[in-house]
């Protein structure tokens, strides 16, 4: 559904980290949608407050595609000349992305790791060996950081780049994507294709959840979680029932985001602060260890807390 179906019920504000921190409705999907309905002008400062965590999407009773709405708003702001220097740099990064010619075996499950995971040889090996126990796996050797950053900043990905990027994905029976924002866009670009986030697949493995303890805080990657909320919800509920670990979710069973972004430079002072988010996740106390699904979150949370932060794949004792 398009944004003009918004009638202002305000359920999105309740779960919006920007609203929870600042209490300003203009920074929420409701505020932006209603303002746009009446004015037709994008308020760039507010459009860039959002961290695209996606918690608003499953709660919207009108089923508005709110992530698409937010990224569209940003695209309009960028076209109108928002932060040109930074945008130029991000465009340059995107143009510089390499697309190596890789032979794709059509029957294999394709794995698209995030850049920090790819660079981290040890963890990467852990992830691939874990996935290989379930899937006939092939890893796509492809940088995705620049594309994700461009999407987040509201830069139109040039069609040629997009074609190069999507070409290897088309034939795989399943693509596992280690990037929630990309996952969201891939579903739009290739509606016939099957995709899944990495976190949900890893945490389904016995080798992983068997090692979760009641004193663990398991940090779900919010973008991927909300993108596949229907499938993810029963899974994580079960995970919590089985392991009694703590999850970063709220009363509505929506994930509390870490508020990390790829492109902090384009964000404004309105964006929610990650430390406050972390405190909110830790509100129940009694957490000895933090387990994260996403390498970006790993890097971010490690700097914010003294508690041990480990990557989900590291739980497996193999």
């Amino acid at each position: 559904m398009p944004y003009n179906r918004c009638h202002g019920c305000g359920l999105c504000t309740l779960v919006c980290p920007a609203w929870q921190q600042h209490g300003d409705v203009r920074e929420t999907p409701k505020g932006l949608a209603r303002a746009l309905q009446y004015d037709g002008k994008v308020i760039a400062e507010q459009a860039f407050a959002c961290v695209l965590c996606g918690a608003c999407e499953p709660v919207c009773p009108q089923q508005i595609d709110l992530i698409a709405f937010m990224t569209n708003l940003r695209r309009r702001a960028v076209r109108a000349g928002y932060r040109p220097e930074i945008i130029k740099q991000l465009r340059h990064d995107l143009a510089a992305t390499q697309f190596p010619q890789q032979e794709i075996q059509p029957d294999k499950t394709l794995f698209l790791p995030s850049d920090p995971l790819r660079r981290d040889e040890f963890r990467m090996r852990k992830v691939t060996s874990l996935l290989s126990t379930q899937f006939d796996l092939q890893v796509l050797d492809q940088e995705i950081g620049a594309v994700s950053a461009a999407l987040e900043a509201g830069i139109d990905v040039p069609l040629t780049v997009l074609n190069y990027f999507l070409a290897p994905l088309r034939d795989a029976p399943l693509v596992i994507v280690d990037d929630g924002l990309l996952l969201d866009h891939l579903r739009i670009w290739l509606p016939q294709q099957k995709f899944s986030g990495l976190g949900i697949i890893l945490s389904k493995l016995r080798q992983i959840h068997a090692w979760l303890k009641p004193t663990d805080l398991y940090v779900i990657e919010s973008r991927a979680f909300h993108n596949q909320y229907r499938q993810a919800l029963p899974h994580y509920h079960q995970l919590q029932q089985r392991t009694e670990c703590k999850l970063n979710w709220d009363l509505q069973r929506l994930a509390i985001p870490t508020a990390r972004t790829f492109t902090p430079q384009v964000h404004t002072g309105h964006s929610p602060d990650p430390l406050t988010q972390l405190r909110w996740m830790l509100r129940f106390g009694d957490v000895a260890r933090i387990v994260v699904e996403d390498m970006h979150d790993h890097a971010l949370l490690s700097t914010l807390t003294q508690k041990p932060v480990i990557y989900v794949a590291e739980l497996a004792q193999i």
């Binding site: 202002g8 203009r26 505020g31 303002a35 309905q37 009446y38 004015d39 002008k41 308020i43």
Partner: peptide
């Protein structure tokens, strides 16, 4: 500005 006011133009 019109946008900020428009958020409140009607109720539930």
């Amino acid at each position: 500005d019109r946008g900020s006011r428009g958020i409140y133009v009607t109720d539930a």
